[in-house]
């Protein structure tokens, strides 16, 4: 198994955090992982993207030119990267900010994660809802595994743990229902 993915959006949408959480999960569960951030020159509000590779064997190139999977949080990022998704690839998009692309050779999972996060009471968990959907769809990790990793990530912020746990399970339910 080698999953090469691109996660992109704009600063503040939790793009880097999402990539890192998946890296932590891979690391926690004896998989190889490689996370490479790309920052724009703007400190805030610019494009934000990262590449993440999860594999069962040692990873060669850390560069993702053709992605197996993409998680996109903003239309501008979708426009930039959609052509890098391989035929037969899997695309997760935030449907509150992105239009479903015209490509017919890919599978698209469009979720209104901004709205869902607002309903849950915190705009900031939109990326965690998406993460839940990713886990349920790809089964790269079990639900228990990703919850276990998230627990570690939020160890120092117990006040936000509850809403993040709810968010991940919400994302899972969107796929499983």
């Amino acid at each position: 198994m080698e999953q090469r993915m691109k996660i992109a959006g704009i600063g503040g949408q939790g793009v880097m955090v999402t990539g890192k959480i998946l890296g932590y999960a891979a690391s926690d569960h004896d998989k190889f992982a490689s996370f490479l951030p790309q920052y724009g020159t703007q400190m805030r509000g610019g494009t934000s993207s990262c590449t993440l590779i999860i594999a069962d064997e040692e990873i060669g190139s850390p560069i993702v030119s053709t992605a197996d999977l993409m998680m996109i949080f903003q239309q501008s990022a979708l426009d930039t990267y959609i052509h890098q998704l391989k035929s037969g690839g899997l695309l997760f998009i935030n449907s509150n900010t992105c239009k479903v692309p015209e490509r017919k050779d890919i599978k698209v999972i469009a979720l209104p994660v901004d709205d869902l996060a607002k309903e849950m009471g915190s705009k900031q968990v939109a990326n965690i809802i998406m993460l839940g959907a990713y886990v349920a769809e790809t089964k790269t990790f079990t639900i228990e595994e990703i919850v276990h990793t998230l627990q570690h990530v939020f160890e120092t912020k117990p006040q936000v743990w509850e809403i993040n746990e709810k968010a991940i399970l919400k994302g899972v339910s969107l796929i499983e229902s």
Binding site: K20, G23, A26, S27, K31, F32, A33, S34, F35, L36, P37, I59, P62
Partner: peptide
């Protein structure tokens, strides 16, 4: 690249 990449 090695400086900024994250790996287990």
């Amino acid at each position: 690249f090695i400086g900024s990449i994250m790996e287990p």
